[in-house]
């Protein structure tokens, strides 16, 4: 499977990719994007099986990315990995069509719990 990781922080993209391995999801193809606009382009050009996106990014933020994907007809499974895990943000994520919101800081266990239904089917 192919996973798109969108975050404006290279450090955080590396941590997300490392945590995917630690959670037992090694071996998947990883595609990276630095902001929502780049992620939007790469969803269409790379056809990932899952998008893991930060919320707060320059150019295009995560919730606008999700809205743009859905309005373009993409139903790619989408989850947030963000420092903002309030009930309000979770409700907005869910209303926008996100499957889950993993709050930073996170653990491999939190990744597995959120990703297992998507990646282990």
């Amino acid at each position: 499977m192919k996973i798109l990781v969108a975050d404006d922080s290279r450090v955080m993209r590396q941590i997300v990719i490392r945590t995917l391995r630690q959670a037992g999801y090694a071996g998947h193809d990883i595609v990276e994007a630095e902001n929502g606009r780049e992620a939007l382009e790469k969803v269409h050009s790379e056809a990932p099986d899952l998008v893991l996106s930060d919320w707060n990014m320059p150019e295009m933020n995560g919730i606008d990315l999700l809205a743009a994907l859905r309005s373009s007809g993409s139903s790619v499974p989408f989850g947030f990995v963000t420092s903002e895990g309030s009930a309000d943000m979770r409700a907005r994520a869910s209303a926008g069509g996100a499957l889950f919101l993993i709050a930073k800081p996170f653990t491999p266990e939190a990744f597995d719990e959120a990703l297992a239904p998507v990646l282990r089917g």
């Binding site: 404006d8 922080s9 290279r10 450090v11 707060n56 309030s86 309000d88 709050a103 930073k104």
Partner: peptide, 26 residues
């Protein structure tokens, strides 16, 4: 990048503790 991500995580979690709605900056 790393120091910015540290404060982003700490700030995002502090935001979640406070009354909302509000917006977190980069």
């Amino acid at each position: 990048d790393a120091v910015g991500e540290l404060v982003n995580m700490i700030g995002g979690n502090v935001k979640s503790l406070m009354p909302g709605p509000s917006v977190l900056s980069l």
